[in-house]
Design a binder for these strands. Structure first.
Lengths: 204, 204
DNA sequence: GCAAAACCTGAGCAAAAGCTCATAATAGTG
DNA sequence: CACTATTATGAGCTTTTGCTCAGGTTTTGC
């Protein structure tokens, strides 16, 4: 392929509704194709085909393939920010209730397309700026959970930082897996056990 | 690229030592290149270059790119099988000791090249047969852990199957992460917390 | 209704990557 | 040493794929 990343800025800015629609069709198709075939095998032609749009149209709205993935990631992060603090901030109740809220939050955040998220995080070649955003986003969440734990009287662990890190990651990954693979056991059972594990850990 | 997977059988069978050596050089180089650049960007030419071997030689021992990854995976699985039961079978001691052994085992199993393992599992396009092998291998391990838990008097969980599944996966994934990313905190601290989490969970 | 702007199309170009094959070099054998 | 089997080489063929551009269609503004 020709050297990627030649253009960096977006192309045309949609001015008509149908253009906005086309853009959305492309993004939806891209999400579908990427999560189905992976980033490398998700060709731009395949995306255009899936979107029922000509390849030319695709390149009117996105300077290159990377930009499409980047846009998908930005959208995901934005949506995450939207309902971020809601459930967690000042969430009261027993430790178990807090943990359960945490798990539910993670599940909700991955409901749309877990495969895609995985690909975005693991296969995408992003700019340093975007990578920075991702990292900061993760760190922010860990910090948020840390504060939550610090405030709860029932939490007894040696090191709050490590604990927050550990449980955020554990919940995240198990959620990934739960959503991604056709699970053998029931979802509720798994959620209960996960909540139990984290809760008992935090209780000391 | 030309349609992959045209040949399925291996090519030449090495009859001289130097051939065996070349084959090994290729595999070693492939492991290096794949874990460095990912599967898609790990080109066969790059592998050959890294192995200081001509591209022609590479294709004398491997029918196509996929076969190289497949061979790497087979080798990994075989090596895993080798020291599988050793530490775990009939491992005595407190629950915490058992769990710690479990964690150490996972760490050891990923020590060689965690990046590569990730790529093999997540980016590789394997035959159904090979996928079957991977799945069976995982299920076997879960079953093994399940038995271990069943035997220990201090284990109190609602559902042994789910518990075994949960902790195998959790330990696995956290190990992945620990090994793959330049960790912020110390390794020991993280291991201790992970062990604590699992132990407290199992204790009920 | 009409011109301009916005939008869409898809054949095809150029680079990249998988892979082949004719030929050369090396190792084994008597 | 001579002869054969095995192994190694790398220029280059072929396919794939990211992406362009010349030209057509639709929408908007007047």
């Amino acid at each position: 392929m020709p050297s990627s990343n030649r253009h960096v800025e977006p192309r045309r800015k949609p001015r008509q509704v149908r253009a906005e629609l086309t853009r959305d069709r492309i993004l939806t198709a891209a999400a579908h194709v990427f999560s189905e075939h992976g980033y490398a095998a998700g060709t731009t032609n395949r995306i255009a085909e899936q979107a029922r749009v000509s390849i030319g149209s695709l390149y009117q709205y996105f300077p290159n393939k990377d930009a499409i993935l980047a846009e998908l990631l930005v959208r995901h992060v934005d949506r995450g920010r939207w309902d971020q603090g809601d459930r967690l901030d000042l969430s009261p109740g027993t430790l178990e209730q807090v943990v359960r809220a945490l798990v539910r939050d993670a599940v909700d955040n991955h409901r749309d397309d877990p495969q895609l998220l995985r690909i975005m995080v693991e296969e995408g070649q992003f700019s340093d700026e975007l990578r920075e955003t991702i990292t900061r986003h993760g760190a922010q969440r860990v910090a948020q959970v840390r504060e939550l734990l610090a405030r709860h009287p029932d939490v007894h662990v040696r090191d709050l930082d490590t604990a927050a890190d550990l449980i955020v990651f554990t919940v995240e990954l198990n959620t990934h897996r739960l959503a991604a693979s056709p699970q053998t056991g029931s979802i509720e059972t798994f959620e209960n056990e996960l909540v139990d594990m984290v809760t008992r850990y935090l209780r000391g």
